[in-house]
Design a protein around this nucleic acid. Structure first.
Length: 130
DNA sequence: ACGCTGACTATTA
DNA sequence: CTAATAGCCAGCG
């Protein structure tokens, strides 16, 4: 478990105020915020947390998401190419694609079709738009 | 304690 | 256009 993220403090989230050893939590929470039928990338989440350079840590955190109490839609998190890079880490490699398709997404060759169209930026959740 | 690995990304050739 | 390289940082041998 990481006790702290990397650099910068987190610009947002954690109503509780905790943020140091919550790197996993942050990633998990952001992941849960992903609307059904949408996907995001590791880098987007990392950037949202202020560690855009450490997208790997996000993926690493996702690995812990399996045991997270509330369900974490890890299947909605793909890499920058829209590829289901983490599919092999699921209970069943096919499960990720099946889940995505069930949510209305199209997946071909382990890649989300029209990815930019379904891409959801976590910052949107905090932006609140105007 | 040192080095390799990895659910990534951006840059350079 | 695609391919290789460098950052990134915690976990594990």
């Amino acid at each position: 478990m990481p006790r702290r993220s990397t650099n910068d403090k987190l610009p947002i989230l954690l109503p509780t105020g905790k943020q140091e050893d919550n790197f996993f939590e942050l990633v998990h929470q952001v992941a849960r915020l992903i609307p059904k039928g949408r996907v995001t990338s590791y880098g987007a989440i990392a950037a949202c947390l202020g560690a855009k350079s450490s997208a790997r840590m996000v993926g690493w955190a996702m690995n812990s998401s399996h045991q997270a109490k509330p369900k974490v839609p890890a299947h909605r998190v793909v890499n920058r190419n829209g590829m289901l890079s983490g599919k092999m880490h699921f209970s069943d490699p096919n499960k990720m694609q099946q889940l995505l398709e069930k949510e209305g997404l199209k997946v071909e060759n382990d890649q989300v079709v029209d990815f930019p169209r379904y891409f959801w930026d976590p910052a949107t959740a905090f932006k609140e738009k105007e």
